[in-house]
Simulated scan of single mutants.
Amino acid sequence: MAFVALYVLLLSGEHADAFVCDQVSACIPVLRLARIRKKVLFYCHFPDQLLTKRESFLKRIYRLPLDWLEEFTTGMADCIVVNSKFTASVFKDTFKSLSHISPDVLYPSLNISSFETIVPADIADLIPKKKKFLFLSINRYERKKNLSLALEALHELRGRLDSHEWNEVHLVMAGGYDERVLENVEHYEELRSLATKLKVNDHVTFLRSFSDEQKISLFSNSVCVLYTPSNEHFGIVPLEAMYMRCPVIAVNSGGPLESVLHNVTGFLCDPLPTQFSEAMEKIVRDPLLKDTMGAAGRDRVMEKFSSEAFAEQLYQYICRLTQ
């Protein structure tokens, strides 16, 4: 990042009105080397020091100067924006020396054009026939994503439905997967074992490293998306689901508190199987919720999370900096 920033300065730094720096703040001191002082906007998605584990003494020592550098260089920006109100609160708690700064919120946008140009794939081989209520979970196969909550909620839902209704229910667990990542491999097997233990394996399809074409088809055929992580920085999946007119059942913490409107575009629940299954039951009992919540979700994405909304807000920040 520092090298790229230096290259930009040498190539066209004098012609720029302002610099926008995304995620990595270490390049900000380089950008300030410009002969004619230029303003810098920094977009903080989440403090980097909170994304790395400190399991050993040596790792903690190694990270000390990097953590200090991140906080110091972040404070050098002329304007700081974050991706959610949740991240803004974490920013305050993490960067103690920057407590005088109150970052603005610039919500990420959804690349809507990609949803309109992709040709949906045939997913008939992924879903058993005569499944009227398809629930969808999309997330990486990582333990912190709490994917087991979706399986436990499905098990709870079974007790709420009669046999006919239950036979019409299916869950697709679609997730990012890399066989070189040990946690992905282990957690995938853990989830399969849990599904067997809960006796819902006949109602679950596990899909690894799905394509964009498959994702579009899954959204189109699902009655609801289950979003299980807690304290997610923002979360793009709820936006994708809402744009595809699919209600979202999400944990009532982190980014979904700002993207999902409870009882309007979906349901916000405690991370408990009973609460998730209760929301799932509402979708099954009242199929019209799919249409009403789906339409509200599409409207919300277009109003607050479209590329146009993002561009307009970013433009205002840049104008303010360069006045």
Rank of each mutant, 00 (worst) to 15 (best):
A5W: 00
L10H: 10
L11S: 14
L11T: 13
D17T: 12
D17R: 10
Q23D: 12
V30Q: 11
V30T: 15
F42M: 13
D48I: 14
L50P: 09
T52I: 11
F57M: 14
K59N: 07
K59S: 15
R60S: 14
R63Y: 15
P65N: 13
D67Q: 09
T73S: 10
T74I: 14
A77W: 04
C79Y: 02
S89Y: 03
T94A: 04
T94R: 03
S97I: 15
S102R: 13
S102W: 09
V105W: 02
L106T: 08
L106H: 05
S113Y: 06
S114G: 03
T117K: 14
V119M: 12
P120F: 09
A121H: 07
I123V: 15
I123M: 01
D125S: 14
L126T: 10
I127L: 02
I127C: 00
K130D: 15
K131V: 09
F133G: 02
F133K: 10
K145G: 01
K145Y: 09
L147F: 07
H164D: 12
E168P: 06
L171S: 04
D178P: 03
D178R: 06
E186I: 14
L191I: 05
L194T: 02
L194S: 08
A195V: 03
K197R: 15
K199Q: 14
V200H: 02
F210P: 00
S211M: 05
E213H: 11
K215M: 14
I216E: 00
V223S: 03
V225M: 06
T228V: 05
P229K: 01
P229D: 02
N231G: 03
E240Q: 13
M242I: 08
Y243D: 09
V248Y: 00
V248L: 05
I249W: 01
G254M: 03
L257M: 13
S259P: 01
H262T: 06
N263K: 15
G266D: 07
S277V: 07
E278L: 15
E281P: 00
E281H: 12
R285K: 15
T292Q: 04
T292L: 03
T292C: 07
R298E: 15
E308N: 08
E308Y: 12
A311V: 07
Q313V: 10
Y317I: 09
R320F: 02
